[in-house]
Write a protein that binds this DNA or RNA. Structure first.
Lengths: 362, 362
DNA sequence: TTGCGCTTTTGGATCGATCCAATTACCGTG
DNA sequence: CACGGTAATTGGATCGATCCAAAAGCGCAA
């Protein structure tokens, strides 16, 4: 009614958005000086800095990172590709990544590749368009090792987490990676089972070929051989509760029934325990069962599941820190951060310690 | 060795990055035409379009969204703030959001506010700097209703998910929201418990005040009154397994012990069941217990938990779709998408149907 | 041939920051 | 007082796209 029209600068994101130039005018200095203040340069005098900051506050100035990035070629953003976000384990990893990035002023684009390489490729393409400073990648199963070379060609720093794709031969071993020592974790489990008297041990679960499978399997083989036991009882199946339950028959109808089933992860183990129960059997009494991951429900199941705790959140934090280092120094030597798993003995493997009151709650 | 030096344009993100101008040169057209092709404009002739696309492919052109956005003031990015990412429920929501954004060519910045409003504020600030087109917000507990007015002032489209902050009075009711009908879900549970003969029912869990608590509590009160029952047995506690277990004593040492405990969510219910067991009692026999959410372990616990299934992934999808509509039309009328919960009857409330073989696996 | 309308293409200005070389201010010293 | 040196500030060019008004090309009717 009164005013003729709101000033609508069409190009700007918000009608009345404040730019660095306006701040400069208000503070009585030049654009360049304001820019230096923004970036915390030690060059500006304390008195000037305060004046500029006051002006920014007074005008409600919002830093336009898009504009800054166009010139400066760094964006304070990273891409985070997880292969299965709905798995609580990866959710925890994501939270860990966010923890570190938040304190460093970075933000992450997220993508759930759902184990689909085409979705993974599409997202990486978008990450390039958005000019991220780097990516954290839990490669989808079936990812070609050549992908890493492509990332190198793009000069896009990349840290792999939890899994890594098999490196192409020519490109010198070693890439940035943060993950769990699957092999050692599995070996600990085997050692524990063997100490309990088990001799015939099956390895159960996993269909997709990736490093996390390979590491576990290597651990199984190595430990069994070390103890002079047969390492040929390997049953592959999808990583779901249902297929874990379904594999019980398979397991029990062997010529020589195993006395222990070391499962790929907790989900399969929990499923297997259900399958046993449906047949009137009980984990820990009729068959020792162990898992991997220590998901919250592992402590809760009956019998509670013996498993290997892997701190997903911490791995996320390490991966993020590693990526930030790599962004700061693209040429530095590759690092591999491998956290140990921790054996958590509960009742499912028939250990004697099984008072309900000592059961740990999440 | 051979070449004197790689051409290093310092300002550009990658040494040899290809720009729109170079594509134009290669295709023998102007910058503007290439730009039109990029945006799929119908103005360019088919023959020209093909020539440009061939040039882009030949040169390995990568679209620079940062540059585009500087001028065009839209970024094809959104912010996603979840209050508790490590909760599998929110992880599922995130996956749903990602599903929809992926098909629409958007990407999401993620943040885990961990129920901390300062972290939430900080992230929103960054989202403004990155000039996102909108945000999906699961507001942290304790979020001031005034935040939404601030977002309005910033012209930042916002869709709330799963929770909403109480609207400030002056700003006309109704904001975009996608969530679960908590109240109806709880009422269904009460109806079921009453049908089973329960008369004294406790409402257990929840400490933070937000809409998701209020909705559940309203459902409890409404349904109890509808049945002519007392609605005063409300025990608040943190949403953890441990405090769920701890509340068992509280519950059983009442003057009139309730016969049923309707828990805020599955986590509390599962904890309560453990607490009962530690006291030699059993859910479904000595006390009916119900949850909310239907997390995977609900089907797995012993006894299996009666609960209300809420499709987190679908809510994420709806929230994302809603936000995209809002971005396209900032002035349109607000929408509230409220999905119903689905009562899943299992054994923990003492229902007769309890064959192990019919138990559902995830 | 001229003029009109339609389709297709174009150049210059612009978005809001950073980079860099140059300039100014100021102080102590020979 | 000129000079060198340091500290602080500045203006112009620049990043790579979009926007817009204008122009070019072209077919057709008067």
């Amino acid at each position: 009614m009164a005013k003729p029209r709101d000033r609508e600068k069409p190009g700007s994101r918000n009608p009345g958005s404040v730019t660095l130039t306006e701040v400069a005018g208000h503070a009585g200095v030049s654009r360049s000086t304001v820019s230096l203040v923004l970036r915390g340069s030690p060059l500006v005098a304390a008195e000037t800095r305060e004046r500029v900051q006051a002006a920014m506050a007074a005008l409600g100035y919002i830093y336009n990172r898009g504009a800054a990035n166009l010139r400066a070629a760094r964006t304070q953003t990273v891409g985070l590709l997880v292969c299965e976000l709905n798995n609580p384990f990866y959710a925890e990893l994501t939270a860990g990544v966010d923890d570190v990035l938040d304190t460093e002023g970075f933000v992450a684009f997220i993508a759930n590749t759902a184990e689909q390489t085409d979705r993974q490729d599409r997202f990486l393409q978008r990450m390039r368009e958005h000019n991220v400073d780097g990516v954290i990648l839990c490669p989808a199963a079936g990812t070609d090792g050549e992908l890493l070379d492509r990332l190198d060609g793009w000069r896009l720093p990349c840290v792999q987490a939890l899994r890594f794709v098999s490196d192409s031969l020519e490109s010198g071993r070693g890439r940035d990676y943060a993950g769990v020592d699957y092999q050692a974790g599995i070996e600990t489990v085997i050692d524990h089972l063997v100490a309990l008297g088990h001799r015939r041990i099956a390895f159960v679960g996993g269909t997709l070929d990736h490093s996390a499978y390979a590491g576990r399997h290597a651990g199984f083989t190595a430990a069994m051989r070390r103890h002079g036991l047969a390492d040929d009882l390997v049953l592959r199946c999808p990583l779901t509760r249902r297929s874990g339950a379904g594999i019980a028959d398979d397991l029990l109808n062997r010529p020589q029934t195993p006395t222990a089933a070391l499962c790929y992860n907790d989900v399969v183990a929990l499923g297997l325990m259900l399958g046993l129960e449906a047949r009137g059997l009980r984990a820990g009494r009729d068959l020792a069962v162990t898992g991997f991951d220590d998901v919250p429900e592992a402590a809760l199941s009956r019998p509670a599941l013996t498993t290997v705790a892997t701190s997903a959140r911490q791995i996320g934090q390490e991966a993020a820190r590693l990526l930030l280092r790599r962004i700061a120094d693209p040429q530095g030597p590759p690092e591999r951060i491998i956290l140990p798993g921790r054996l958590v003995v509960r009742q499912s493997c028939g250990s004697p310690s099984s008072s309900l009151h000592h059961r740990d709650l999440s």
